Amino acid sequence: MNFEAAIFDMDGVIIDSEPFWQDEEVRVYNKYGLPVTLEQTVTTRGLRTDEIVSHWMITFGREDIQKEEILQELHAAIVKRVKQDATLLPGVIETMTLLKNMQLKIAIASSSADQIIDAVVDAFELRPYLNATHSAYHERRGKPDPAVYITTATLLGVSPQKCIAVEDSVNGMQAAKAAGMTCIVIPSDGREPRMAFEQADLRVSSLLELTKDILLSLHPLGV
């Protein structure tokens, strides 16, 4: 294996946040006159929240709404839910420990805002494992654009081709692959058709499946 870093998506990979993300999205969007349903939130999984809000404002013809108010309320609600309800997904600590022992750098590249990333990292004491965190809010476009992954690799001082990305959404997988990374996918709830993840280099049901032998069997693109 010639990899030098592993970059994790956060929501749905590190923490089981999708259920309360969906609940809070529906609650806040409906409050501001955007009649988004629980089922519709699945279609925007992995995208940056400001881009999601813009999408629904256009979809429902409500471009008169104050987007920043929605974002502030939603982000505050998610930080609160992280502290109250979030759980670490199985295998996170074990996998990060394994990667550290294999001398790989570790980072988080998330579509969530900085305050949400910080809330998760602090709540589960992940900083000792991490070399960097980066939010797609610092990029011109969020996932599936590859910018968040490319910048994270730069922060680590590693070529994107020498990075393994771990994702749970189609948008995230597309971002990682567009960045030139090898991508492991852990589909979050099976709602996406299996063929949606055909670009993935490896598909597993849990981080607990990632052994040293499996990681060593992966090779950077072009190698």
Rank of each mutant, 00 (worst) to 15 (best):
L88S: 06
L38V: 00
T37D: 07
T43N: 12
E51Q: 08
V82P: 06
I65W: 08
V79S: 03
E51F: 07
R81W: 09
A76Y: 03
T41H: 00
K83F: 13
M96Y: 03
E68Y: 06
D85P: 02
I65E: 04
G91D: 09
R45F: 11
E68L: 09
L38E: 04
N101A: 12
G91S: 06
R45D: 10
H75D: 04
G61I: 08
I78Y: 08
Q84A: 13
Q66R: 15
V82N: 08
W56R: 04
M96G: 03
H75L: 00
W56C: 06
Q72H: 05
F60N: 03
V53L: 02
Q66A: 13
K80Y: 14
E94I: 04
T43S: 15
T49E: 10
D50M: 12
D64L: 12
I58G: 05
E39Q: 13
N101M: 02
T87E: 11
E73D: 04
A77Y: 07
T49S: 10
A76C: 05
R48W: 04
E69R: 14
T43P: 03
V92E: 12
P90N: 06
I78W: 09
A76V: 07
F60Q: 01
I52V: 15
E69W: 07
Q84H: 14
T44A: 07
E63L: 11
T43R: 14
K67Q: 01
G46I: 02
Q84Y: 10
R62M: 09
I70N: 02
I58N: 14
R45A: 12
L38I: 00
E69Y: 07
D50N: 11
K67G: 01
K67M: 04
V42T: 04
A76H: 03
A86C: 04
E68A: 10
D50V: 06
L98D: 02
L89M: 12
E68M: 12
H55W: 12
Q84P: 10
E63W: 02
L89V: 09
S54N: 11
D64A: 09
M57F: 05
T41M: 00
T95N: 08
T95R: 06
I70A: 01
Q84D: 15
T97S: 12
E69Q: 15
I93H: 05
H55G: 08
A86E: 07
E68R: 12
I78G: 01
F60R: 00
V53P: 08
Q84T: 13
I65D: 00
D50P: 06
G91N: 08
Q40D: 00
E73Y: 02
V53W: 00
G61C: 07
W56D: 11
R62E: 09
M102Q: 04
R62L: 05
T59Q: 15
K83E: 15
N101T: 13
A86G: 05
V53F: 02
Q84S: 13
H55D: 11
A77P: 08
G46V: 01
R62H: 14
